[in-house]
Amino acid sequence: MPTTGRTMTASIGNRHFVLRRLHSLLGLLPVGAFLIFHLWENSQSRFGAEHYNREVVEALQGLNYLVPIELLVIALPLLLHAVIGLAITREMRAEPIRYRYARNWAYWLQRLSGVVILLFLLLHVGMTRIQGLWTPAIRDDLYGYMQTLLSNPGFFALYLVGLLASVFHLANGLSTMAIVWGLTTSAAAQRRFAWACAGFGVLLAALGVHGMLGFLS
């Protein structure tokens, strides 16, 4: 079989392909799934401090193998997704002004939101989970802590940006993931699925905003 002159040959043995597909997969499972779960949990803020602190925070903290789960199912996949994502973002030569097409904007925003999310998460995780490690007061009344935090308009805006960036990143990521894995091929199918993802994103954003407002009631 003639093979000369072909410089590209790879398959699952190729790190590049595996890492890219891994990145795509991680975005949905577990990272995306965790985001949905997290926003759903936090939407219980509307039931008040007592309910939230008991049913959400305590219940989660009572989980068996909590730390390994947090590390292996959330932190590590998130880290991997972020690192590969940053590498992908480095390749970008976006020209959002020259090509004012929705998908081109989405391409640019996906990368931009990725960086925004990363910065936001450093702050968010640092101020809640990490700081909580040595400040038991945060763990004991996370609701109150969040209430104080979100009452500050600056922090509220910051959280809103973090939330919307995350939701956009997930919804748009889902729609391109369908192309990457070959679920949607025709332009019509890609468009339909993009609308479905957009609808899902709006619902998820509503859930998240609702949760944020729940802390202020």
């Binding site: 093979t3 072909r6 392909f17 097409y101």
Partner: peptide
């Protein structure tokens, strides 16, 4: 299979970012 393996390597299909400007221009 050979062609698919070719585009599964560095610089292949995975490097597409789905900006989809290509199809517009």
């Amino acid at each position: 299979t050979e062609r698919l393996h070719a585009i599964m390597a560095e610089g292949g299909l995975s490097d597409c970012g789905n900006a989809q400007n290509c199809v517009r221009v």
